[in-house]
Write a protein that binds this DNA or RNA. Structure first.
Length: 469
RNA sequence: GACCCCGUCGUCUAGCUAGGCCAAGGACGCGACCCUUUCAAGGUCGAGAUCGCGGGUUCGAAUCCCGCCGGGGUCACCA
């Protein structure tokens, strides 16, 4: 094997990091880490108005959140296309001097007419080559490509894909105003950054033969190519905002842990036997582009949430606290100290698919219920309910031990004395303490909440029940 | 329209390179039951794909060949 693997992810900062882009970045990162190579981040900001620093910052932040660290790239200078204009100019000049590229001054209107004429003839539009041998000194610089023959893209995922030169044309490398075009920048960048494997979206496959011809004109070896399928929406068209959330940040804000997101994205289009859940180390160890599927994949939020839940369930309370803290604060709640918070979250993790749900399910831990579920209140907060609460409160007040086990004993004894079933008293207490009918196991929850707070809520519910009666 | 890619349960996929181990396996979701102080979690079981369609080749095809259909992508002096 020759040199080390060098791959790159090249987003253009014209929006948030899309999950499709994130998956492409992930595959590149995994490939680099697997081969102990380099993951390069390059910013394709040749775009005039559309690129913004805010978008770039958001993309970098999303990559960092996912844990996809880059070995080369911003903030080190030299990884933004806007900083590399001199390099493109130099390569363009080389091609021109060698006769591999030529200037063209065909007016856009003429080109447009020819394009429509070709369309009418049911043919692929192809630049006529009118300016090929006119020896012009200015204009748009076009790459001279062969009229006959074919270029084969040896794709690592799709196998050999042949493009007839009759379908390709002398494309523009540099515009009349002197700015390089995207396809040209990509080639020059990949060459000068010594990229060995280009792993990118399937939407670039059609551009690849043009780029290969450019590599050849420049006299450079062509890197390995791998075109990853698109991520689709439920209607099988490319996933876009009209399908719902598509930015990585949206999922982060929805409370999906980064590791779950990474696992989901990795498994979308890539597989390793029947395994579904992977540690990051396993991902790095097992990942190989040859196991990446060639077909498009629909983004399934339900499965993402399942994975998110699996990750949450595997965390211990302390780790959960770290993950959940920002979400607790975002909900406007005051988190208790870590020693109390951790065991609380432990009781919640089985019943929440995301961190947002975790906080919602455990809201009662942080503040008294603002209201009682109406239907449950109608059933339980009655005269009889008040009587039961009274009996319960009396016994609890007499109980010095506030452990879950002791609380259970008190409840069972009370139930016995009142000739009730445990479920009756449990649901009544749940309603009083949480405001609803679903919660973590009652006795643990009461123990965690503490004697004073529980008694306070029980008494309040008793008051409401009496008021209703 | 031209070119290119793709096509196995609703979804993600295994299997396809070396045809029989596949009357197609796993996972999500869905249904039932068990467990149970609620909701979950967990356990068990189940429904669900004639492998896009049609021809071939072969004793035998999801796997090989041909044709078709469907979906998607690319066709800019955008990226």
């Amino acid at each position: 094997m020759g040199g080390a693997v060098r791959v790159r992810f090249a987003p253009s900062p014209t929006g948030h990091l899309h999950v499709g882009g994130a998956r492409t970045a992930l595959f590149n990162w995994l490939y680099a880490r697997h081969h102990r190579g380099a993951f390069v981040l390059r910013v394709e900001d040749t775009d005039r108005a559309r690129s913004t620093d805010e978008d770039l910052a958001a993309i970098l932040e999303a990559l960092e959140w996912l844990g996809l660290d880059w070995d080369e790239g911003p903030p080190t200078p030299g990884y933004r296309q806007s900083e590399r204009l001199a390099i493109y100019r130099e390569h363009a000049e080389r091609l021109r001097a060698a006769g591999r590229a030529y200037y063209c001054d065909c007016p856009p209107e003429l080109l447009e007419r020819e394009r429509q004429a070709a369309q009418k003839r049911k043919e692929t539009f192809r630049y006529s080559g009118r300016c090929r041998d006119r020896g012009l000194e200015r204009g748009a610089l076009r790459l001279r490509i062969p009229d006959t023959g074919a270029t084969v893209v040896n794709d690592l995922i799709h196998g050999p894909v042949t493009f007839d030169h009759g379908q390709l044309d002398d494309w523009i490398l540099v515009r009349t105003d002197g700015t390089p075009t995207y396809n040209f920048c990509v080639v020059v960048d990949d060459v000068t950054m010594r990229i060995t494997h280009v792993i990118r979206g399937n939407d670039h496959l059609s551009n690849t033969p043009k780029q290969i011809l450019c590599y050849e004109a420049l006299g450079y070896p062509v890197p390995e190519m791998a075109h990853v399928s698109m991520i689709l929406g439920p209607d099988r068209s490319r996933l876009s905002k009209r399908h719902g959330a598509t930015s990585v940040q949206a999922f982060r804000d929805a409370g999906i842990p980064a590791d779950a997101m990474v696992n989901y994205l990795a498994r979308l289009g890539w597989s390793h036997g029947d395994q579904e859940i992977f540690t990051r180390e396993e991902l790095i160890e097992f990942f190989d582009i040859k196991d990446v599927a060639a077909s498009g994949a629909i983004f399934d939020e339900t499965k993402l949430e399942w994975l998110s839940h699996e990750y949450l369930k595997r965390q211990d309370g302390a780790a959960l606290a770290t993950l959940a803290l920002p979400f607790i604060r975002a909900a406007g709640l005051e988190p208790p100290e870590p020693a109390r918070l951790a065991p609380m979250l432990d009781t919640l993790k089985e019943r929440a698919k995301t961190l947002v749900e975790l906080v919602a399910a455990g809201r009662f831990y942080f503040e008294p219920p603002a209201a009682y579920e109406p239907q449950a209140a109608a059933t339980y907060l009655t005269v009889e309910g008040a009587r039961r609460l009274e009996a319960l409160i009396t016994r609890l007040e007499a109980e010095p031990d506030w452990s879950a086990a002791a609380l259970e004993r008190v409840y069972r004894a009370t139930v016995e004395a009142l000739s009730l079933k445990l479920v009756d008293l449990a649901q009544l207490s749940r309603l009083a303490v949480t405001g609803g009918m679903a919660s973590p196991p009652l006795f643990e929850m009461l123990a965690l909440l503490g004697r004073d707070e529980v008694l306070r809520r029980l008494r309040r519910a008793r008051g409401v029940a009496e008021g209703r009666g």
